[in-house]
Design a protein around this nucleic acid. Structure first.
Lengths: 205, 205
DNA sequence: TAGATTGTTAATCGATTAACAATC
DNA sequence: TAGATTGTTAATCGATTAACAATC
């Protein structure tokens, strides 16, 4: 029963649960419990059960959860039982590392197009993808039904690039530039800035 | 007045405020308000005022906040009015990109040591740093008073590397490996996994 | 069966928002 | 002064935890 009013904070924890379940699966562990998952993730068992209960009952009383089954259910809920084609814009050091990173495949994503505005980079090959100019963004996004983009351009260009993505039909943006993007309510954006995470820790040191 | 019982969720927003204030400063804007900041960040003005009030009063009624002053105060609260030396462990594609990334300097951090366990990489130079073997981790961390580490090793090694860091004296870890680290209560860990962020968005698509 | 663990309800806790006196 | 915006208090809202009946 895919509900519509699931709190964002709950949805935000599901990928963590899914990641741990995949890890358990590779370890050959077939059954787990809210208590064990919670201990591994530093989350209370009650919270895990409550979170999952928003979507239905996936366990058996007295038995716990079947790892493979719960994993499949979470993949379905998060809609990563399919592969989302992604655009990557900005092929600097970080963009290159992201382009090479294989860790997104088999977790629901695949980079299918690379873009940069540097004429020296356009035409270069990375793996089996060729870097394209920004003028190709809109046609390629439409042609390949791309709904997710990763942005790894300098901060000064990020807002403009994001708007170009959205105009082209992208609905979700993962932004690596150290600025807060302004996106309309019908679009989604997530931000990754290592310094933000570092500063969250130094306050306590 | 540095308090001890500030909610984590409040501390977590301060780096976002700081980043925006730095941006405003580079734009030449000298005064802002909770309303303007909130609009830019997608956060309510009341929340920004409430967050800041945990640490004191930084504004003037009717006037708003002096950008430079508030920025300095936040830098002090987050303890990034100093430069934290960091170790980076794992010099693959991502580690290399992080090593080249200049965006951490002038935000309170500097990578001062690189480590890898691959003999082919040890001794290589990146910028003005040389990649060292893991046997050098403990002595270098002590010698250079390193309290913060970034881990960019494969998932299978991350927990072991984290424990080595902590044993050597590191107190805060930024982990790029796609696993949840288990750290003791006296240590801090933050995790960056792009797929987690992507999956938080696909649920809604 | 006896023991264990779920799913859910109720209670607690904490965070956000609203409102406004203070005051620049 | 008049207008604007802070800092703070009180009210609301939402999230987490505790507890337990259901049941595997």
């Amino acid at each position: 029963m895919p509900a519509k009013d699931i709190p964002d904070i709950v949805v935000g924890r599901l990928p963590i649960y899914l990641r741990e379940l995949s890890f358990l699966a590779t370890e050959g562990i077939q059954v787990t419990s809210s208590h064990e998952l919670g201990k591994r993730l530093g989350i209370s068992a009650a919270q895990i059960r409550k979170d999952l209960s928003h979507f239905g009952g996936f366990g058996k009383q007295g038995m716990g959860y079947n790892v493979g089954h719960l994993r499949e259910q979470l993949r379905r809920i998060l809609k990563v039982d399919q592969e989302w084609p992604m655009a990557l814009i900005g092929i600097g050091d970080l963009g290159r590392a992201l382009a090479h990173y294989g860790g997104v495949v088999d977790r629901g994503f695949r980079i299918v197009a690379l873009f940069d505005n540097d004429p020296a980079k356009i035409g270069q090959q990375i793996g089996d993808l060729e870097i394209m100019g920004m003028d190709q963004l809109a046609p390629i996004v439409r042609e390949r039904s791309i709904r997710v983009a990763m942005i790894a351009v300098p901060a000064a260009h990020a807002q403009r690039v994001a708007e170009a993505c959205l105009a082209a039909g992208v609905q979700a943006i993962l932004n690596y530039a150290p600025i807060t993007l302004n996106v309309p309510p019908d679009a989604r954006a997530q931000h990754i800035d290592p310094v933000v995470h570092l500063q969250r820790m130094t306050h306590h040191l």
